[in-house]
């Protein structure tokens, strides 16, 4: 069954057609790559799914629910977590607190509960802390728990964003260029991590420029060019697809 369905998604900014009639399905439990040259509309597709933008036309169905035009935090609570292309951590807060942000949607207590420190609130805080620490360990940042996010290395900041997204208990996690700025060794570890996420029965949709990563990690690939889908299939087929080769390398003449 497909977990996420995009139907005829269209979005333009002024005169620029950023996403043009894009449709594809994301099967539950799979790792899907979204690729395309710069400016192909990949991040816009992500922003449409996560509710940062509202599509002009088309619909998005997640887990049987229409999420088109829903507010971002609602979409997160339904089970879509994301990371950002340019790192968007809470720089002046600790790594642990960054991950706790992801726990927010799964917690309930409000201002009154906090001021009175009710037993329920205390239990919830304890549990949140424990699961935030678990996610930090999962990405290998347990040692850095009490360090400020801005003091982490670039690669670790990317991992921290993933931990924060995972803390929301997503069924689908959307990674926007997770390997950008990572070296060869970090990228290899990232591929392992992506597979470990999949082993947790979390579906993954990722944008990536690093072709070797996409080809190694993804089971299926969707290719965009100028906002339109030009190809879709397994990595082996995508590699051979003349339209994809043309889009990336240009034509001979």
């Amino acid at each position: 069954m497909s977990l996420l369905t995009l139907k005829n998604l269209t979005k333009s900014f002024g005169g620029l057609m950023a996403v043009n009639d894009v449709s594809f399905d994301v099967e539950e439990g799979s790792i899907i790559g979204l690729i395309g040259p710069n400016g192909a509309g990949k991040t816009t597709v992500f922003n449409l799914i996560t509710g940062n933008h509202r599509p002009d036309r088309g619909e998005i169905i997640f887990n049987g629910i229409h999420i088109t035009g829903m507010l971002t935090h609602r979409i997160v609570s339904l089970g879509i977590g994301r990371t950002f292309q340019t790192i968007r951590l809470f720089q002046n807060l600790t790594a642990l607190e960054n991950v706790l942000a992801g726990r927010h949607a799964r917690m309930k207590s409000g201002a009154t509960g906090a001021m009175l420190r009710t037993p329920g609130q205390k239990r919830e805080e304890r549990d949140a802390l424990a699961s935030a620490l678990r996610e930090l360990s999962f990405v290998g940042l347990q040692e850095q728990a009490n360090q400020l996010a801005r003091n982490l290395s670039y690669g670790n900041q990317r991992l921290l964003e993933i931990a924060r997204a995972l803390a929301t208990e997503p069924r689908l996690v959307i990674l926007d260029e997770p390997a950008s700025g990572m070296n060869e060794q970090e990228t290899t570890l990232l591929i392992d991590l992506i597979r470990m996420i999949r082993d947790r029965k979390i579906t993954i949709l990722l944008i990536e420029h690093d072709m070797s990563l996409v080809m190694r990690a993804c089971e299926r690939i969707v290719v965009l060019e100028y906002g339109s889908k030009i190809a879709e299939g397994p990595p082996s087929a995508i590699k051979e697809d003349p339209k994809v080769i043309e889009a990336y390398l240009g034509t001979g003449d």
Partner: peptide, 27 residues
């Protein structure tokens, strides 16, 4: 107490980066 709670943290998240806060599931 408020500072050290879900409510207090949520305020800090939104001060640090509103888009990321919303994207982390904070209304």
């Amino acid at each position: 107490r408020l500072e050290n709670s879900r409510f207090g943290r949520a305020l800090n998240y939104l001060r640090e980066d509103e888009v990321a806060a919303e994207g982390s599931g904070i209304n």
